[in-house]
Amino acid sequence: GAYRMKIYDRDELRGQMSELTDDCISVQDRFHLTEIHSLNVLEGSWILYEMPNYRGRQYLLRPGEYRRFLDWGAPNAKVGSLRRVMD
């Protein structure tokens, strides 16, 4: 299947937008971000990790809009890595 997600540095799907279609071992290295404040999962399911290298707390992201970090259940906006959930 296809995988696509848009990430934003501000809440409510605002601010600088970056797009992912594959795994990202370090959000900071690739996008120069340490925080993601909202996101829109367009295709596929993903796991968001608090730390790089797929470590730390993890949150399942199904397709849909997440307008603030509380929407995916996190206590803050800190994001380290993102990985696709393969079928």
Rank of each mutant, 00 (worst) to 15 (best):
L60H: 15
T34N: 14
Y54Q: 02
G56I: 03
E43M: 12
E65N: 08
Q58C: 10
Y49C: 03
Y49Q: 00
G44K: 05
V41T: 03
R10C: 08
R62S: 09
L20A: 14
S45V: 10
V41S: 02
E12C: 08
V79I: 11
A74N: 02
D22M: 13
L42M: 14
E35W: 05
M51E: 09
R30H: 14
E12F: 05
N76L: 14
I7C: 09
Q58Y: 03
H32N: 12
R14I: 11
R57W: 03
R4S: 08
K6H: 06
Q58G: 05
F69A: 12
S45F: 13
P52L: 02
R62M: 04
H37I: 13
N76A: 12
E65T: 06
S38M: 02
R83E: 13
G56S: 01
D9L: 13
G56N: 04
M51R: 10
M5Y: 00
Y8W: 13
R67G: 10
R62I: 03
I36K: 01
P52T: 07
A74T: 03
S18M: 09
S26L: 10
E50D: 09
L42K: 14
L82C: 05
R83L: 05
T21G: 08
Y3G: 11
P63E: 08
Y59E: 07
R68T: 12
L82I: 13
Y66W: 10
G1S: 07
R4D: 13
S45G: 09
E65Y: 03
M51D: 06
A77S: 08
P63N: 05
R14G: 05
L20S: 13
K78E: 06
G44E: 02
C24L: 11
S45P: 14
K6I: 04
E12M: 07
L42H: 15
L33Q: 07
I47R: 03
D87H: 08
E43R: 07
Y54L: 03
L13M: 13
N53V: 02
R10P: 02
T34Y: 08
E35H: 10
G64K: 04
V27G: 03
D87T: 11
I36L: 05
A77Q: 14
L60A: 07
E65A: 12
G44W: 00
S26E: 15
L61M: 06
R4M: 07
A77E: 08
R68A: 11
L70R: 08
L20K: 00
R55Q: 15
E65G: 03
R83D: 00
R10D: 15
K6E: 12
S81E: 02
F31Q: 15
E35A: 08
G73L: 09
V27D: 01
G56C: 00
M5L: 08
W72F: 03
S26P: 01
M17G: 08
A74Q: 03
V85F: 13
L60G: 04
P75I: 04
R68S: 10
Y49N: 00
L33K: 14
G73M: 14
R68E: 14
R14P: 03
S81D: 00
H32C: 11
C24M: 11
R14A: 10
N40H: 08
V85K: 13
R67I: 14
N40Q: 10
V85E: 06
P75V: 05
R68M: 12
E12S: 09
L61E: 00
M5W: 02
H32A: 05
D9P: 12
I7K: 00
G73T: 11
L48Q: 01
R14W: 09
D23W: 02
G80I: 01
G15K: 04
R83V: 09
I47W: 13
E50M: 03
R67V: 07
S26I: 11
D29K: 14
M51A: 05
P52D: 11
L39M: 05
L33N: 08
T21C: 11
R57D: 05
R30L: 11
R55E: 07
L60N: 15
L61P: 00
R4F: 15
D22K: 11
D71R: 04
R83A: 07
Y8Q: 03
G80N: 03
R57Y: 09
R62H: 13
E35P: 11
F69M: 09
R62F: 05
P52A: 06
Q28N: 09
M51C: 08
R55V: 06
I36P: 03
S45W: 04
C24K: 00
P52V: 03
E65L: 12
D11Q: 09
E19L: 09
S26M: 13
V27L: 12
D87N: 07
W46S: 01
V41M: 02
G73C: 03
L20C: 11
H37R: 06
Y66I: 05
F31I: 15
S26A: 10
L13N: 13
P75D: 04
D23H: 08
P52Y: 00
E43G: 07
L42F: 14
F31G: 15
S38C: 09
R68H: 10
L82D: 02
I25A: 10
D22P: 01
Y54D: 02
N53M: 04
K78S: 06
D11M: 12
D23F: 01
Q16G: 05
L82Q: 01
E50Y: 02
R30F: 05
M17V: 06
E19H: 15
L60E: 07
D87Y: 07
I7Q: 01
R83N: 01
L48H: 00
L42S: 11
R10S: 11
R83H: 15
